[in-house]
Every structure is written in structure tokens, then in C-alpha cells.
Design a protein around this nucleic acid. Structure first.
Lengths: 340, 340
DNA sequence: TTTAGCACTCATTAAGAGAGAGTGCTAACA
DNA sequence: TGTTAGCACTCTCTCTTAATGAGTGCTAAA
């Protein structure tokens, strides 16, 4: 589409703007990247690039800045893959893989490392229990009216809850119910657990059954809140685009809308590999000055979640893509290994 | 100490400054609170209050603003207790008490409600397992080399972890170990679990014992990260004291220093009732433009944690104190009831 | 097709002039 | 003796104006 020189100019402008956050003028380009042409020639190229919609001019006597469309072209066709130094990669893998973290903790740690590595906000969607399979259900009587219920979900969640009952139970009764429940649920996914199965549980297991069903339903509803989280928000405050506190506040508020984040991230999760959502491509207004880079992660061959970073549209896309990819791979490895 | 009129003037200044964030002049006071005296008289009082150190002047031709010392006097001797409308109190209690949340979730929810109620950052220190007592230990063999370990701690935590072993175990072996462990640990606090007990576990229970001890030690180390959290940071960005992003960034960074928060909050937890730390009273520099209001919460008669709010020193102390108190009471009630 | 030259635009900065808020001090008053 | 009116003074804030300079688009020549 674009001839070679236009590509070079566009790349030079984006690289420079990403670094300095200042509109880029023709002289700057000519001086810093020697393309062997004069500023005037570059001006002509810039005018063309603006006409196609890849560049914008904040005002007539300023330099150019990339448009969302410009960034899109950069991401799709222009940027060179970023590689982290081997030592950096090893450091991260070591921190994540060596420690014997529980999966939940490991994800939190991954979010932190990603935020640190990219100096921006990291986003994680943890596996939802909806798509997980019951592996083991266990009820233990602690006291006559106090029961500990433990759910092991495949491939990676353990949940438990203390239940109080009005009725008193004996250890044998509870053990029996526990076993029966196990038979009924084993191998089913959380989502398949339709109303019929729930009703069966209620009718078969009396009070315990009722309480359990309550907990399951309520657990699913609550889960969304915890399922997605953002870390490292303070990083982004140092970016010049947030020198205006209003905008920072708006973004921070948006980051607390978990359901919106979930929508954005699970939308991106439909395709595989690293996804980039640039500025206005995002349908949520408060995010339209930001870009999001995401990637799904796996347990074995199953997609179980998404992680990514969020920053101003003026971000180092190559680095972000590399970081998100690295982290997704590492997390997948970790979870798969954990689950064997 | 202070005569009545000085107290009225100081209170008027603080109330006005808290509301408007603007230095308060003598005319404003005279006009808005009719003390029956002229601005000139108030000016004299203000000069006296400044001399004692309760007020400061940003520059010679501005009004006065309260100093930390002034706020301290206000909190200790001047402010009138704030009461929330009954409907508000009920709404909060309903949300917290009605739902069947797990204790961890309930605390998170309480943090959110507190942040919402006070429109500032809420801080929570969750119970540390260090001070909790082993109530029940349970090992279940899921697969020959995969064991689910569950720890029930009194009064309020349940932890669990999937363990992989190299050696294969039979259900009977595991059940036996589980029971033996139970005997050994029941009634001990996490903290009392000294090296001798740990060594016994390792020698008595072979590989499982080793893995368990590893998990326990590592769990304690990790815990601090999760034990304290801050919610509602975005609220504070709308405050005029953070119009300068630099300061906001510094504070946000501070909020991520979990160990510092833990120090501050557990320092305050030593006294009972609602504690107020004003500005420079805090030894941590990045917090010295902020005040913290905290209160401990209970399970039964045991202090198990602390919660509070953080905002600029220019905060509505009466309201904050009332909110923190309300929330601490409600959380205590909830946890105590949950634990019965 | 490229480039030098030039007129033009517009943000940014600095300096200066008022305006306005608020003070402290003095002297008069109750 | 405490209170108040009057007044000079200080300092921030805002508005205006002018100068600076970065950067452009266009034209014409190479």
C-alpha cells in the first residue's frame, strides 16, 4: 500500500512520538533518522500520510501525531518485534515458576510482574468457575451444626465454605451426603449444573442441599467481582496524558467497573494470540484514549482466561505485545504444569 | 484551655475549610456564622489561634487554614459527633449482614461500602492467620499423587492447597496422616507452631509432611500481601489537594507498599476505639499530607483486624469517625455471628 | 521529484497592570 | 479593657499584550 519511504516516515514519527509525547515535526525526523531527504520532502510525505488518515495535526503550526488508524497500521504492518533480554525473561520465569504458588496467587503475581515490566496497568481475567468441571466435592462435619464444604474444580480452582445448619448432623450422615453429592456432580461443568440438578440436590439432601444450592448460585453471582482485576494503576499517572487529573479519575473509575473490563477482555479473548485494541476501536468511551493489549492463557489446550495491559494509545506497542505474550505463555506453562 | 469564642472561631474555620478547601478569612466567618462580633475581632482571635499553632497562613494576604495541631484539637475537643440517617445505616447493615458472604468476601464488601460512604480510600487489615488457632486439618486423596489439604483456622479462615507428591499414597494412608496431623495441631495457634513441631511433622509424615511444612512457611510469608488492601483510590482524585498529579502518584505508590500500610494500621490497632492519625503525626513521609481514621474489629472479644479510611488532612473528621466506627461494629457483628 | 526559501499560523512564555481578598495596626469608642 | 472602624499594605490571581519560535504549506527553481 504505502511506499517504502512513507513507511519509514510513519514509523519514525510513531517511534518519536511514543518516546517524547510531543508532536513530531519534519525537521526532527530529518535530523534524527537520516532518510537522505530534506525536511521539505518529509513534509510532503507527512501531508500525504495525514490525508490517508494515519496522522493528525493538533493545530496548524504543530508537528504531527499518529491517529488511531496510524497506530493500527503500525501494529499490523510496521513494528518490529520486541525481544526482552534473556536475563529479564529468566528473571520473570524464575519468579513465577519457582515458587509454589497456588494458581490464584500465581495470577496475582503475574499481574504485578506484568505491570512492573510494562510500567502500565495490567489486567487479568481469572478462570471462571462456570467453565470448570467438578472434580471432587467434600463435606466434613466440624461440629454438629457446622459443616465445611470443599469444591475442587478442574482444572484449577478450589473453593470452600463453612455452612451452619439448624438441624444437627452426625459424621456418618454427612459422609454419606458427601459421597452421594460427589457421584452426582463429578465430571459435570459448573455451567451444566442446571435447575434440574439443583432441584434434585435440594430434594435429596434436605437442609444441607438447600444451603449448598444457595451458596453455589450466590457464588456464581459474586464471582465476577473477583474474577477480573487491574494492578499497577499508579504507573499510569506518570504518563503525560494523565497530567490532567480529570482524565486520570475517569480512567480509574472505569477500572472499577469490573463488568465492563470483563466485556472488553472476553471480547478480545475470542481470537487467539495477542490482540490489540487501539483507542476508538474500543466501544467504551472512557477507554477511548487508551489502548489495550491482551492475550489468552491456557491450561493444557483449554483457554481459561485472559491477561493484558492498558495504557495510553501512545504506547510502545512492540514492547507491550512482547510482554503480554511472554506473560501469557509463562502463566499457561505454570498452570498447565500445576495441573499436570 | 481555649475560651468559648476562640473555640467557636476555630470550629467555624475548620468547618468552612473542610467544605471549600479555600483559606478562610475573617469576613467569611463573621458573615456565615453570626458570632455577634465584627471581622476585626475575629481577626484578633485568629492571630491568637495562629500563635498557639492551631492555624496557619499560606501567605500574608490569604485567610487561615487549620494546622495539623488545629485538626488534632478539633478531633479531640471540638467536633460534634456525626450521625448517619437511620436509613443509611440500615442499608449498609442489610447489605453486609443479609448476604451469606464468606468472611473474606464480607471484608472486601465492607471496604467497598466504606469507600463509598466516605468518598475516600478505605483500608482493611484482614485477620492474620498468625494469631489464629488450628481447628481442623483435613487431607483428602484425589489421585494417587494428588492430595487436597484443607486448614480450618479459628475464628475465621479456611485455607486450602493442592499438593502433588512424587510418592503414591493410598486413601487409608492419607486418612491416617490426616487424623494424626489433626491431633497434633488442634488448638495450637499458627504462631505457636514453632520449629520443633514443624520438624516433628517432617519426621513423622514423610514427603507429605515436608510439602506441608513448606506450604505453611511460604503461606505465612506471602500472606502479608493479601492481608491488607486499599479500595476506592479513585475517589480521592477528585479532591483538590490532588489536583497536582505528582502528589496523587506518590500517594498511590504508597498505597501499594503493603508493609508500610500494615505498620501504620497495626500501630493504630494497639489502642481500642476509633483512632485518628493526622498529617505529620504519621511517620511515613508520603502520608503526611493525609489523615487516617481507623478502628479495630472483633470476633467475639478478640481483636482480629483493623479497618479505616484515608483522605487529605482536610477531611470531615466527624463523618469519617462515625463511618469507620459504624463499619467496624457491623463487621464485628457479622464475623462474630458467622463464627457464632 | 526534490529542495530551498518564505510568508504565515498559532501555541507558549514573559512581563506588566489591575483587581480583589485579606491582613495587621492604630486610634476611637463603649 | 475589649471591640470596632478605618486604612495602608501585601500578595495572589487574572487579564492583556508582545515577543518568540516551532512548524507548516506553497511556490519556484534545480
Amino acid at each position: 500500500m504505502l511506499d517504502e519511504r512513507k513507511r519509514l516516515v510513519l514509523r519514525a514519527i510513531i517511534d518519536s512520538y511514543v518516546e517524547t509525547a510531543e508532536p513530531v515535526g519534519s525537521r526532527t525526523i530529518a535530523r534524527r533518522h537520516d532518510l537522505g531527504v530534506s525536511p521539505a520532502t518529509i513534509r510532503n510525505e507527512m501531508a500525504d500520510l495525514e490525508e490517508i488518515g494515519y496522522l493528525e495535526q493538533p493545530h496548524v503550526s504543530a508537528g504531527r501525531i499518529p491517529s488511531d488508524k496510524g497506530y493500527r497500521f503500525y501494529v499490523d504492518a510496521l513494528m518490529e518485534p520486541h525481544t526482552f533480554p534473556q536475563s529479564e525473561v529468566e528473571r520473570i520465569e524464575k519468579q513465577l515458576l519457582d515458587a509454589q504458588h497456588s494458581p490464584e496467587r500465581a495470577l496475582h503475581l503475574a499481574a504485578k510482574l506484568l505491570a512492573l515490566l510494562t510500567e502500565s496497568v495490567s489486567l487479568v481475567v481469572a478462570p471462571s468457575s462456570e467453565q470448570l468441571v467438578f472434580k471432587h466435592v467434600q463435606l466434613v462435619l466440624l461440629e454438629p451444626t457446622s459443616i465445611l464444604a470443599t469444591l475442587v474444580l478442574h482444572p484449577m480452582l478450589v473453593k470452600n465454605r463453612l455452612i451452619r445448619t439448624a438441624q444437627e448432623y452426625s459424621p456418618e450422615e454427612v459422609a454419606e451426603i458427601s459421597e452421594a453429592l460427589n457421584k452426582k456432580l463429578k465430571g459435570i461443568t459448573y455451567r451444566q449444573l442446571g435447575m434440574t440438578v439443583l432441584k434434585e440436590i435440594i430434594s435429596d439432601f434436605g437442609e444441607i442441599g438447600r444451603v449448598l444450592v444457595d451458596l453455589v448460585l450466590q457464588g456464581l453471582a459474586e464471582e465476577k467481582e473477583e474474577q477480573v482485576y487491574a494492578t499497577g494503576a499508579s504507573n499510569i499517572l506518570t504518563q503525560p496524558e494523565f497530567r490532567d487529573v480529570q482524565r486520570a479519575a475517569a480512567l480509574f473509575e472505569a477500572l472499577e467497573q469490573k463488568d465492563m473490563l470483563l466485556n472488553i477482555l472476553s471480547g478480545a479473548a475470542r481470537s487467539s494470540g495477542v490482540q490489540v485494541i487501539i483507542g476508538q476501536e474500543n466501544t467504551y468511551a472512557p477507554m477511548q484514549t487508551c489502548s489495550i493489549v491482551t492475550c489468552t492463557y491456557y491450561v493444557g489446550d483449554d483457554v481459561v482466561g485472559t491477561l493484558g495491559v492498558l495504557g495510553p494509545t501512545r504506547m510502545d506497542y512492540a514492547k507491550m505485545v512482547a510482554a503480554v505474550d511472554l506473560m501469557a505463555q509463562t502463566v499457561s506453562l505454570l498452570l498447565t504444569r500445576h495441573h499436570r
